[in-house]
């Protein structure tokens, strides 16, 4: 590299952007699976499980993602566990996303009206059946807009993987800048790419939210 911004630089950035998308998907899937467990644990009938899950959420939500990244990438090797930048970023994001999605989803599960639980209980469904057949299908609808909205947070947060040297979009920008020293131009391009990734998802989340609001309004008019 060197000289002025050319096609090679742009393709390097595009490659980084692809990894931003890839890392976001890893975080969404990993954090989603773990977050689902966290959400269920938060409303578990077993007190110890609830407390444990609440402690996990409090701890992670009280710690910057950046510190979690440093902890996994720099903190584990001295203990004899070596991790690649990708592994460190994936694990950190999963831990982080699980705490936030877990809380969001717990809220959604709890916002299904109590009477739905009672009606399912009255029909002799077991706790698992109540959850799987009555509560979760309704909670998923409630959860869709905020989950889509949180995907924007995930994409933005993958930029922090740059601090452990993982070459996603932000790190790609840094590397090019080190060669060209055109910071303003390069970071504007980087920002525009992030915006292009995030904005449609933000919009989608708002549209879904509005649809849900309308659906609810219609329902309440009809049953009033």
């Amino acid at each position: 590299m060197g000289g002025s911004l050319n096609a090679n630089h742009l393709s390097f950035l595009a490659h980084g952007a692809l990894w931003t998308v890839g890392l976001s998907l890893i975080a969404l899937i990993g954090g989603g699976l773990a977050g689902f467990v966290v959400a269920l644990a938060r409303i578990s009938p077993v007190r110890a499980v609830r407390i444990l899950a609440a402690g996990y959420v409090q701890l992670v939500q009280g710690t910057p993602l950046l510190v979690i990244m440093f902890l996994t990438f720099f903190g584990l090797p001295p203990l004899g566990i070596t991790v690649s930048p990708l592994a460190a970023a994936s694990v950190s994001l999963t831990i982080y996303v699980a705490a936030y999605l877990g809380e969001i989803w717990r809220g959604c599960i709890e916002s299904v009206p109590r009477q739905q639980w009672e009606a399912a209980e009255g029909l002799a469904l077991s706790r698992t059946q109540r959850m799987a057949k009555v509560i979760l299908p309704q909670a998923i609808r409630i959860a869709t807009p905020p989950t889509v909205g949180f995907m924007v947070q995930i994409i933005k947060n993958t930029s922090l993987a740059s601090v452990v040297g993982f070459v996603e979009l932000a790190r790609a920008g840094q590397i090019i800048n080190n060669a060209l020293f055109e910071p303003f131009l390069i970071y504007v391009i980087v920002a525009v790419v992030y915006f292009a990734l995030c904005y449609p998802i933000s919009r989608l989340s708002r549209v879904l939210e509005a649809q849900r609001g309308r659906g609810r309004a219609r329902l309440s008019v009809e049953t009033a």
Binding site: A119, E121, L125, S126, V134
Partner: peptide
């Protein structure tokens, strides 16, 4: 509980259909 509720049907004020 589940045996009891198989023998007893309950209908609520707010219908509570799913």
């Amino acid at each position: 509980l589940r045996a009891l509720r198989q023998d007893v049907g309950i209908v609520f004020q707010s219908y509570n259909l799913f």
